[in-house]
Amino acid sequence: MRFDLETFKERSERVTIDDLDLGSFRRQPLSAPALRCIRYMHDVEHHTVCYLRDLLVGPAHADPHVTEFLTIWSYEELWHGEALGKVLAAHGEPAGPARTSVTRARDRGLRPWSLAVSLLGRGRLGEDVTALHLTWGAVNEWTTQAGYARLIAREPHPVLVVLLRRLMRQEGRHIDFYASEAAARLERSGRARRLARFALSQLWQPVGTSVMPAEESAFVARWLFDGPEGLAAAQRIDRRIDRLPGLQGLGLVQRARDRHHAAEPTAPTPVRPRSPRGAST
């Protein structure tokens, strides 16, 4: 059954945080590792609009069903970043443009793979390239939602738990779209299945890896997905990927988890707010 886009549009909203006692973070601060994860999540959520750019440069922009969803998805993800920014601000940390300008400075435009498949999409592979983008989105949304769940398990601060569960509910609706659309398109096309399998197996990395410092991506993967519970969470995502047509046995998320667990722990990268244009430093 196709995703009910009309209901999704009607129910779309800015995530509610006005009723949360954000002052509780000053009285009961998060641990240093949890706060490091919040910084990462804040930056990645605010970078969604740049992932949207990568999607729309390809053939997906011609599909109204896809573009209507992406418009709302980008809006909701913006407010996820804003909500996480409130948590950072309650800890006396920079949030919003002070952080996102640094992330944008690391972004060097379209990923090479995205540009390549977008160029292919202008020919006979258009629908198959859209299937790849939607499949990639499903994997990213599954890992994002799992990351929030793991942060709840590792840092059960009562206000943080409520906030993250609200984010997870919206992420769940995003998952419904990406996974259902990806499954339908992969089912219809063997070429789409081959393209998605090749691209994911060779190029996929956890969300944010392309724009965040390598040590931060490694830390988040290592800390959130540590121990038997973390391994089980990674394996659950891989089982969901297995259910998509043609993608059985990739083991993407466990492989990424194991790779980052083999890395040495590192100190966090400090965020240095960018000076206004023309100002001395």
Rank of each mutant, 00 (worst) to 15 (best):
H47R: 01
V49R: 02
V49Q: 06
C50L: 03
D54Y: 04
L55V: 11
L55T: 06
L56T: 12
V57Y: 08
G58E: 08
P59Y: 11
H61A: 15
D63P: 00
D63G: 04
P64F: 05
P64D: 08
H65D: 00
T67C: 09
E68H: 08
E68T: 13
L70G: 06
L70H: 02
L70P: 01
S74I: 04
E76F: 01
L78N: 14
G81N: 03
A83R: 03
A83G: 07
K86G: 01
K86E: 11
K86P: 00
L88Y: 05
L88P: 05
H91R: 11
G96A: 11
G96C: 06
R99I: 02
T100C: 03
V102Q: 10
V102W: 06
A105R: 14
R106W: 01
R106A: 08
R111Q: 14
W113S: 15
S114H: 07
L115A: 15
V117Y: 07
S118K: 04
L120K: 14
G121H: 09
G121M: 08
R122D: 10
G123Q: 09
R124W: 00
E127G: 15
A131T: 07
H133E: 10
L134Q: 07
W136D: 13
G137P: 00
N140C: 07
N140P: 00
W142L: 15
Q145Y: 05
Q145S: 15
Q145W: 05
A146I: 08
Y148A: 09
A149I: 08
R154Q: 12
E155G: 06
P156S: 06
H157Q: 11
P158Q: 15
V161P: 04
V162A: 12
V162W: 00
R166I: 01
M168I: 12
M168Q: 15
R169H: 12
E171T: 04
G172I: 12
G172H: 12
G172Q: 14
D176I: 09
F177N: 02
A179G: 01
A184E: 13
